[in-house]
Amino acid sequence: MKITVAGVNKEVKDGLTIGELIQQENVETPEYVTVSVNEEFVDGQDRNEKSLKDGDVVEFLYFMGGGSHGFNR
């Protein structure tokens, strides 16, 4: 089946779970990545079970710091 991951079209095996996709994509610090499928958030505990469907649009949203650190003691 075909899915879109971070804007890129990919051919993946049928029934691939989000957890498997996270492994395939070598997602850094997966436990702190927000996942959306077709513009809906998928919670951490649902990722291993939830299978993707043909045409799904998956996004990984990462924590990014940066800037200045003169804040909070």
């Binding site: 924590f63 710091g65 940066g66 800037g67 200045s68 650190h69 804040f71 909070n72």
Partner: peptide, 9 residues
């Protein structure tokens, strides 16, 4: 927001 750490964000 030009902070660098998550608690601040």
């Amino acid at each position: 927001d030009g902070t660098d750490n998550f608690p601040a964000k």
